[in-house]
Design a protein around this nucleic acid. Structure first.
Length: 761
DNA sequence: GGCGTAACACTTTTT
DNA sequence: GTGTTACGCC
């Protein structure tokens, strides 16, 4: 075996060679953590442990793949058999095999955040609640928090503490929403992200034979980024390693930045209590950054109270002081940083050596524009990912529905797409029918003429026949690419985008082609044994932001949020937007008052830098069309000023060495961006449109905007039927309904979401 | 009933 | 600046 142990320092060596019994590695930033984990697995395999007995949980799928390749280089192709991946992807795989015990089929759908929110929205609407108080984001966070602490909807509704909290938040109905949400997901044969972990816990709790099987399979369990695991994840790993007791966790409490999603720093702090004979190894030497950067980071993190004792240090060169730039505006901030990058390239640095890190995705625009003007190539990680684009989700919707006809979110997305004359009211009727007859939407539309009539029915039959033809292909065992190609063609999605010659239409067509390509790659990849549509979908829905495909040119400036930068390193890092209320974030401070997590986030940002670090802030910033005046972030002042160097360059600053001549005196960007939607519209219409004077229209309180106040006995006015009285309200069904007795028309049942009613005082 | 247009609301971080 | 909803027209 290759002697890779020689190059390790003492604590690293201990961590790698510790074989049996629980182990905790506290790995400071830049301490060679990835190397230790890689070698540790290689060492275990070298001493006779089979690859398929090792489970290694990472934070991104990409990290897992990289590690697998590194191990492969040391130990050989046996590394292919390692179980590696994110918590979500590994346990989704296990649930595919074992989920039938909980009532799911093997091709269950994974709801992403958008699906979850859309489902919550419909539930709120059905309950006739005000969607301004009941915000899907908030409810989802609440439900997610409950699930991550293993609180089922039953437990949630039985516990008066939660109800008291919800009442004080003006949302007493959250318990009921949670219940309905969970039941809907289940009947749609779907799990959201949190369910993947929650259900794994249920599975291991209720089916001891299953637990036993995996306990014996995984002789070694390793968890990377342990500081960012939540209770649910921790319990899974604890159960899995209960037999062999070979659990190895790696983490750094100073880099815990996911408490907002349920990560629990107590996991690290309490780990010792759960494993009394725990061996702890601390990796404290930073090999990544200069002394200046490490010291500055230490001086900042010292302000935090909750942390384990450790002393990180660097034996590297002293390095430059940290530069702090004050800019007049957000756009100027972009220009200055783009210019700095442009100049630094003469000092032998390449694009790929730079990273621009910000707190929120929305901040990327000023930097994009500035970099494009100087013809500097960049890539953005995160933000709206490829798989969140409308055209992609549309095609994926068809794929999902082909695999799982219970998937109502997919149904709602594709039923009238491309337009086939099936409108909202028809869809609403189908949903009502389904719930009244205790059947799934699919069963209704397969026999639609038994239930409803009207001109949309023929379109619905065409639709079901289309889907049926895809299902047959799936049952015949055709691979994912063949089916997806067929769907893209026969639905007309591809054609519709093909004939759309607008800029966006062309881009969308390309995107769909790209998706089809990636499915082809998935099918052609010999490492994927299961080439079915179901298998592809499960992989796709668990891709992380860091898993984005590259276009082959690696020499680009990287832009991303600090959260996305975890585990990465760059020669020169810019941390931008250091303004009070932006970083630390106003939201964070208002909702959780957790300044320490924001500080750790800043710590993570600083420690990404190898040689140089630049901090910047702007005095004014445009946010959603409004100009805001900003103050310098308190975090800059928390760094020991001995490590800082202040610089305020004006907006007239132009980069040295920028050759305007070769650009024809004009800034002529070679990297062209597609015009934005508004630009495209502006190109179509002349600007000379006179705006009509605003007309004052008296507002009328028509339902549904006011349904929350509607109760039996109310006198109402209907636009068409005139005056009447509410007899009965049925808001338990999928669509809220009211039985109203009208003076002229007699009794009528109305779908409230479409009725035009007004409450008469 | 369906579809196009205009006003409206929304901006934390991610699996 | 962008995506969603509501209204009014066909």
């Amino acid at each position: 075996m290759i002697d890779f142990l020689a190059e390790l320092n003492e604590p690293q060596h201990q961590a790698v060679t510790h074989e049996n019994g629980p182990l905790m590695i506290i790995a400071g930033a830049g301490s060679g953590k990835t190397r230790v984990l890689t070698y540790r697995i290689a060492h275990l395999m070298g001493s006779g442990v089979d690859a398929f007995n090792i489970l290694s949980l990472t934070f991104t799928n990409k990290a897992a793949e990289e590690m697998r390749h590194r191990i492969e280089k040391i130990i050989g192709s046996e590394a292919k058999n390692l179980w590696m991946g994110t918590f979500h992807s590994v346990f989704a795989k296990i649930l595919r095999f074992e989920g039938f015990r909980l009532g799911y089929t093997s091709n269950f759908t994974i709801y992403d955040t958008d699906d979850s929110k859309s489902l919550l929205k419909t539930i709120v609407k059905e309950f006739n609640l005000d969607d301004k108080t009941y915000k899907p984001n908030f409810i989802l966070n609440r439900i997610s928090g409950a699930k991550n602490n293993l609180i089922s909807w039953q437990m949630y509704n039985e516990n008066p503490v939660f109800q008291a909290e919800d009442i004080s938040a003006q949302m007493p109905e959250i318990g009921r929403i949670y219940k309905t949400y969970a039941q809907r997901c289940f009947s749609a044969n779907a799990m959201d992200f949190d369910d993947l972990l929650f259900n794994t816990n249920v599975l291991f709790r209720d089916y001891l034979d299953v637990l036993n099987k995996y306990q014996h399979k995984f002789k070694h369990v390793m968890v990377d980024e342990f500081q960012d695991t939540n209770i649910s994840q921790y319990l899974i790993t604890r159960k899995l390693s209960a037999v062999h007791q070979n659990i190895c966790v790696v983490g750094d409490d100073a880099q815990s930045i996911y408490a907002f999603r349920g990560a629990n720093i107590q996991n690290i702090l309490n780990f010792k209590k759960d494993y009394p004979d725990l061996k702890v190894v601390k990796l404290e030497q930073n090999y990544r950054s200069t002394k200046n950067i490490v010291n500055a980071a230490n001086s900042l993190i010292a302000k935090n109270k909750a942390q384990l004792e450790k002393k990180t240090f660097s034996d590297n060169e002293e390095g430059d002081r940290i530069e702090v730039i004050k800019a007049h505006s957000d756009n100027e901030e972009g220009k200055i940083i783009a210019n700095t990058i442009f100049e630094s390239k003469h000092q032998g640095l390449r694009n790929q050596d730079f990273a621009i890190l910000y707190r929120t995705n929305a901040q990327s625009r000023a930097f994009e524009e500035a970099l494009r003007k100087l013809n500097i190539k960049y890539r953005i990680i995160g933000g709206l990912s490829f798989y969140q684009r409308k055209e992609i989700k549309d095609l994926l919707g068809y794929l999902r529905y082909t695999v799982n006809q219970q998937d109502e979110e997919a149904f709602k997305r594709i039923i009238n797409l491309p337009k086939r004359g099936i409108g909202d009211s028809t869809v609403a009727k189908i949903v009502v029918m389904a719930s009244e007859n205790q059947k799934s939407v699919w069963e209704i539309i397969c026999n639609i003429k038994q239930y409803l009539e009207g001109r949309a029915m023929n379109s619905i039959e065409t639709f079901t026949n289309l889907i049926k033809s895809y299902i047959i292909m799936e049952e015949e065992g055709k691979d994912a690419h063949t089916i997806a190609m067929n769907i893209a063609k026969t639905t007309g999605i591809l054609h519709e985008l093909y004939i759309d010659k607008t800029v966006e239409g062309v881009a969308r067509h390309e995107n769909v082609q790209e998706l089809l390509n990636s499915i082809k790659q998935f099918v052609d990849n010999p490492e994927n044994e299961d080439k079915t549509l179901g298998s592809f979908l499960q992989t796709v829905s668990l891709l992380t932001n860091a898993d984005q495909e590259e276009d082959g040119d690696p020499d680009k400036v990287t832009m991303m949020t600090i959260h996305g930068a975890k585990g990465l390193e760059f020669k020169h890092v810019f941390v931008v937007g250091l303004e009070e209320n932006l970083f630390p974030s106003q939201m964070m401070l208002r909702s959780r008052e957790d300044l320490e997590e924001e500080r750790r986030l800043f710590y993570v940002a600083i420690t990404r830098a190898e040689k140089k670090l630049t901090l910047s802030y702007a005095e004014q910033r445009y946010n959603w069309g409004k100009l805001n005046f900003c103050e310098k972030s308190r975090f800059i002042d928390e760094i020991d000023p001995a490590y800082l160097k202040f610089d305020d360059r004006g907006s007239s600053y132009t980069p040295k060495g920028f050759d305007f001549e070769s650009f024809g005196r004009k800034e002529r960007p070679v990297v062209t961006a597609p015009p934005t939607r508004s630009q495209a519209i502006a190109n179509l219409k002349p600007v000379s449109q006179a705006k009509p004077a605003p007309v004052h229209v008296p507002t009328v309180d028509f339902v549904p905007s006011d349904t929350k106040n509607l109760k039996p006995g109310d006198k109402v006015e209907h636009q068409k039927f005139g005056f009447g009285e509410v007899k009965k309200l049925d808001n338990l069904g999928p669509t809220a309904k009211a039985v109203i007795h009208f003076d002229s028309e007699g009794e009528k049942t109305l779908l409230l979401s479409f009725a035009k009613l007004r409450i008469v005082e």
